[in-house]
Design a protein around this nucleic acid. Structure first.
Length: 595
RNA sequence: GGAGUAGUAGCUCAGCUGGUUAGAGUACCUGCCUGUCACGCAGGGUGUCGAGGGUUCGAGUCCCUUCUAUUCCGCCA
């Protein structure tokens, strides 16, 4: 027998019993006449004592090194006063070894498991060792707790887990697809799913009412701390449910996950904010509501001043002039302001004007700023509108609305973080009333769907077709945002052939293309489609915030690097020529060399 | 595609304005040690300074190119 108990579970309740434990040597302390071995398994550590009463056993203990794998048989003994280790869960006892078996030796490992800093490059190259670290063991356990809670909730509420294909069809719009060449259909390709979107809609048409799946999705786009080329979604779809009903279920599920896994209890309904309000107040469609600051429009006050930097965007219908008041920010140094100026330049902002509020009662004399001289008559009205108080600093953004929103929106979070302006630990919010379309080409007016082309607009089919400003049309889409992170999104889907055709038409997708790319869906719509709606949660992101990590790489067992490579397996790799021949593929010059 | 940061011993890092034989902690190896728990003590080995090129009497240090990791912009319904 190799194990009667997990190392971490041998406690004083087992005193005087004989146990067999197996695990890794976490540390060995050799005192010459007695050897201590901390043995580790997934449940924790326990101290093994090896006495020199048996030469063979002792010789083995002397040979043992870190990360050897052992089976130890011995008696659980209470420790005497003074040798108890209160830092260990098993510190009141130790196992006095009767026998030791070395199951596997280990070369010295490239880093120590309790090193506080290890470069990510090394961690990912030796991920199997990195995952031995307690931190990573905990994170993966949290991840499992989350999926288990999800499954329980959904099972209890009549949802069915149904699998959908991984080898599927490339669809237009959206992200770049990962492609898989077909051997049996040469020169044709499968695509890995960006999400099971169309399949889950088809399942609704098949009558499976309430579906869920914890499934992998693939998008061949550049990576970020919260974006991997393959990531996991909790995918959900329901039939015959209204928008509020679906959102209600999703909110309940979310509360359950946070409650059970994180001991974080959201007692109130998640607030809802419209997309338009989110952009106006926070400059972004996934506001971090832990920070109280808001953007304030001041364009109307500045249209007729001589200061072109402000006046021009103030008059431009596509421009925006907004202020961000930072309470007690006037103590910022010149260098800090310069750094923030540099920060907003990332988003295309050409500058970052500011006014330090030293003494409001002194009027304009009490303001310190390089720009007040350009609009002395308006400045006090602006101070009043933003609610300025002594000791504040007010930043200004003036440009195209998109630039102002992104720059001040990002600045808001950055300053909130730098000055530790968080007013609460958790801030969930629903963002609703997304626009249906977005203009992607100013010249041609070409549209793209903000959510996806199967989202139901808040309009009739007729209205869709004759809408003069399609970019003003709203959709029945909703995002769940927690602490400024989009953790999930969904929508009510189109369940009517004509409406779907109308939306595709607005998107400039021809009948032929629509037929070729998702004719199967359009066809299915003809045969009795229930009203349906759903949502997808980003599992990695949920786990990331629950585990308080800054990157989803930390909550994925084997993640990819920023260049979408796996440091452990060295994927992607070359393949044999035969394999290419089977697929009727051959190399051409890499795009880089061809230039 | 673009901007920033980093790359020196197995690991984490120091190495200033260019100057002799590149250091520290830790790991590792050897010896000693019967109560440690990051055990202790003594001793020991150690490097393609990411790679390539250049400037210089001389480059870890300066310049150029490049690779890798990472953060962000673009991109990601």
């Amino acid at each position: 027998m190799m194990r009667t108990h997990y190392c971490g579970q041998v406690t004083e309740t087992l005193e005087n019993q004989n146990v067999t434990i197996s695990g890794w040597v976490h540390r060995r302390r050799d005192h010459g006449g007695v050897i201590f071995i901390d043995l580790r398994d997934r449940e924790g550590l326990v101290q093994v004592v090896v006495n020199p009463d048996d030469a063979e056993k002792f010789a083995k203990a002397e040979k043992v090194r870190s990360e050897y794998v052992l089976t130890v048989q011995g008696k659980v003994c209470g420790r005497t006063d003074g040798t108890i280790n209160p830092k260990m869960a098993t510190g009141k006892i130790e196992i006095v070894a009767d026998s030791i078996e070395i199951l596997s030796t280990s070369a010295p490992i490239p880093f120590q498991l309790d090193d506080k800093v290890i470069s990510e490059e090394i961690r990912l190259t030796y991920r199997f060792l990195d995952l031995r670290r307690d931190e990573m063991q905990q994170v993966l356990r949290t991840r499992f707790d989350v999926t288990r809670t999800m499954r329980r909730f959904l099972d209890d509420n009549g949802f069915m887990d149904i699998e959908t294909p991984i080898l599927t069809k490339s669809t237009p719009e959206g992200a770049r697809d990962y492609l898989v060449p077909s051997r049996t259909h040469q020169n044709k390709f499968f695509a890995l799913p960006q999400s099971p979107q169309l399949f889950k809609q088809l399942l609704m048409m098949s009558g499976f009412d309430r579906y869920y799946q914890i499934t992998r999705c693939f998008r061949d786009e550049d990576l970020r701390a919260d974006r991997q080329p393959e990531f996991t979604q909790l995918d959900i779809e329901t039939s015959f449910m209204t928008e509020p009903e679906v959102m209600g279920y999703m909110e309940k599920l979310t509360k359950k996950i946070f409650g059970e896994v994180g001991d974080i209890h959201f007692t109130e309904d998640f607030p809802q904010i419209t997309y338009a309000d989110a952009i106006r107040d926070y400059g972004i469609d996934r506001p971090d509501l832990r920070i109280d600051m808001k953007l304030v429009d001041v364009a109307d006050l500045l249209q007729n001043i001589d200061f072109k930097v402000f006046a021009a965007p103030a008059k431009d219908p596509k421009g925006r002039v907004a202020a961000l008041r930072v309470p007690q920010g006037a103590k910022m140094t010149r260098k800090e302001i310069d750094d923030y100026t540099k920060f907003v330049s990332i988003y295309g902002a050409k500058g970052l004007a500011y006014i330090k509020v030293n003494d409001l009662s002194a009027g304009i004399e009490g303001l310190q700023s390089p720009i007040v001289k350009f609009f002395p008559d308006q400045v006090m009205a602006i101070m009043e509108r933003v609610g300025a108080e002594d000791g504040d600093i007010v930043f200004f953004g003036a440009d195209k609305a998109k630039i102002v929103n992104e720059a001040l929106g990002a600045l808001r979070c950055k300053i909130g973080e730098d000055l530790d302006m968080f007013t609460k630990e958790w801030a969930p919010v629903w963002v609703v009333d997304f626009p249906m379309f977005e203009v992607i080409d100013e010249e041609t007016g070409a549209l793209t769907a903000i959510h996806h082309p199967f989202t139901q607009p808040k309009a009739t089919t007729q209205e869709i077709l004759v809408h003069k400003n399609p970019e003003d049309m709203l959709s029945m889409a909703y995002d769940m945002v927690i602490n400024g992170l989009e953790v999930g999104g969904g929508s009510v889907r189109i369940h009517d052939t004509d409406m779907q055709a109308a939306v595709l038409k607005m998107l400039g997708i021809s009948d032929e293309e629509a037929q070729e790319k998702f004719g199967f869906l359009l066809n299915a719509l003809k045969y009795g489609c229930p009203p349906h709606a759903g949502m997808a949660f980003g599992l990695d992101r949920l786990v990331m915030i629950l585990a308080k990590r800054d990157s989803i790489r930390d909550v994925i067992a084997f993640p990819k690097t920023q260049s979408a490579a796996c440091m452990l397996t060295e994927a992607p790799g070359l393949v044999a020529n035969d394999q290419l021949e089977d697929l009727a593929l051959r190399f051409r010059k890499p795009v880089k060399d061809a230039k």
